[in-house]
Design a protein around this nucleic acid. Sequence first.
DNA 1: TAAAAATACTCCATAGGTATTTTAT
DNA 2: ATAAAATACCTATGGAGTATTTTTA
Lengths: 120, 120
Amino acid sequence: MECRRLTYFLAVAEELHFGRAATRLDMAQPPLSRQIASLEEDLGVKLFDRSRSQIRLTQAGLVLQDHTRQILERLDSAFRDTRSVGSGGGGTYQNRLRRIRVSWRAANANTILPLTLSGS
Amino acid sequence: MECRRLTYFLAVAEELHFGRAATRLDMAQPPLSRQIASLEEDLGVKLFDRSRSQIRLTQAGLVLQDHTRQILERLDSAFRDTRSVGSGGGGTYQNRLRRIRVSWRAANANTILPLTLSGS
DNA sequence: TAAAAATACTCCATAGGTATTTTAT
DNA sequence: ATAAAATACCTATGGAGTATTTTTA
């Protein structure tokens, strides 16, 4: 799996419009459509309902959107943390780890549970 | 960022040997070395200490390894969950969401905090 | 009929393989 | 001297662009 595809998927899921999503991603619409189709094929699942004029996320699409947001956030903090340790941002090793834990908590504050929509 | 690189990185971090990691990944050693070098370049940080006969993770490498494990696990459950919803695994929508939450909790049971090594 | 997504095709970037060199013990 | 990683070089897979067709409202 390539993370680029997740970025593409998230853009389409938010715009609900391939053309606008492509513009936002600074790419053309056809390759974006193909990547989403390829992702759907890999998963064996439709992520968007294209039968109407307005595109909609399927249930599977909603689940993936939820996971994807958190994965991409996590990826982002992974890089920030790795860079900040690597460039020896000052202080002791213990303090650097402490700062990293703090930033990790901040990045994941809203990551307690996905799919809070159900009331079971 | 490409997730493939994270898989590569994790294999090397676990084997601490480019040759064995490449075998495990079913690829040749040179492209693996290049991908790791390219990852280090992107991050602006050395992930491995190659100055000794036995390769070692740098501090930055340890941080990235920690994040990477969890990101890849998360990616895995994202796909499982998306597939299981998509293929309409039986039961009501609410019950399917409930099962997904349960599997999510299981996959993330050890994901409370990274870097628990420090005692601050 | 108009707006948007899908397809056809072409091209290029980059990932991967093989052969070889460098390095370190 | 040997084992392992790095480099050089080549090939090929697949990602992206343009032009066009299909679809649906």
